[in-house]
Design a protein around this nucleic acid. Structure first.
Lengths: 216, 216
DNA sequence: GCGGCCATCGGGGTTCCCCCCGAGGGTTGC
DNA sequence: GCAACCCTCGGGGGGAACCCCGATGGCCGC
């Protein structure tokens, strides 16, 4: 038989002490706790000195969120690997923390065994995402934002989408016209077309439509 | 010396297994785990058969939330006591679960010792709330909804707030007038007054102002 | 090359938004 | 009883929003 590999050293960042306790208990076999923290600043200094193999990082933290921790640590040591661990499965949260430099993102509803597996894979260099979240990340970095084929949005021309974004942000026709370097009449034409295609009747419904789809 | 009292029997409802593990570990001294569950239906049946002294209940649960658990259990056994335990400190969540019948509400950032104390107090019949949350509950049941003194909103008259809500939802003046049974001119007057008092300049800004404050 | 789509504009009109002015009736408080 | 509000309206006006109709180019595909 071969010698057992040394246990992975895991650092834990979460503002909920009860949750930290849970992770600690569940990971007690096969992992070594390199330290833990509940705030951003505390976490950054402790991680830099503890040099863990993987950092388990809560996204919602007082003092700047998990992104602040990643930014602070990577400023001096870009090699530390982070696995985001959050209750949220909102695309904004996922994308924000991944952009900051997290190598994976799993929700707290994960089974302890799966978490252990995710930690090992992140340490090995893999990117780990809950199946439901993988799509968001790929989309965000594919740039093209292929998106789950929104037939409503697809029937709009590029220019119409452009105008739509401005209108949804609250700009008046005159302002949109100046920003896009076109005439008010053209803006009206595009808006009219958008409203007809989306079967809406006013710019207010349009803003709601846009915010519902997170196109702000 | 007197005999030690029997340990309180605690039931745990949370969809995050890691979190359950944390609570289990931290409460291992002085409490007995009467069972645990991660979903609404599972929780209701298990609680009814386990007859715990106190149920620790997560607010955000798949399948109807913590309120559904309380409703299901209280339908057959109104004596079970619930202590809500949530990451959220949003007034809606607090009020909803307290209306459903929870005897207390603490956030997951609570220290383990405080949680143990809160459980004992709920069992003794007390109502336990994090200091920041007590105000919401009292307000909600005092009916007056004094709210954390929003000076912006306070300077509006009741009728102005009423009109504001409709406008923020996207109704045209004519529609607001018909819904409130008043003239368009009166609606205009109220809107004008609201815009002046809030130092806004258009109904669009008003919509954003209202949604920022969650007055939808 | 011609029809079709897109983007760009104009004219002209209706409706809505927001403002100014004034005004009457109701309530509360001093 | 009077001041101070609040709620209720009207007239009138300027500007923005939205619509319909028509028109000019450019680009693409058949």
């Amino acid at each position: 038989m071969t010698a057992l590999p040394p246990p992975l050293r895991v650092f834990l960042v979460d503002d909920h002490r009860l949750f930290r306790s849970g992770v600690r208990t569940e990971l007690s076999h096969g992992f070594e706790l390199a330290g833990e923290a509940g705030e951003v600043e505390e976490a950054v200094t402790a991680i830099l000195s503890a040099q863990p193999d993987v950092v388990l990082l809560d996204v919602h933290l007082p003092g700047g969120g998990g992104q602040a921790v990643i930014a602070g640590v990577h400023a001096t040591d870009p090699d530390v690997r982070f696995l985001a661990l959050s209750v949220s499965d909102a695309p904004e949260d996922v994308i924000a923390v991944v952009r900051a430099g997290a190598r994976g993102y799993v929700t707290k509803s994960i089974a302890p065994d799966s978490l252990a597996d995710a930690i090992r894979r992140v340490h090995d260099g893999d990117a780990v995402f809950s199946p439901r979240l993988a799509g968001f990340v790929l989309d965000a970095f594919a740039g093209a934002v292929t998106e789950p084929a929104d037939p409503e949005l697809d029937q709009l021309t590029p220019r119409e989408r452009e105008v739509l974004r401005h209108i949804a942000r609250g700009y008046a026709y005159k302002q949109v016209a100046r920003r896009l370097g076109i005439s008010i009449k053209t803006v009206e034409a595009h808006v009219s077309s958008v409203l007809r295609k989306l079967q809406l009747s006013s710019r207010y419904e349009l803003t709601r439509w846009a915010t519902d789809r997170r196109l702000l």
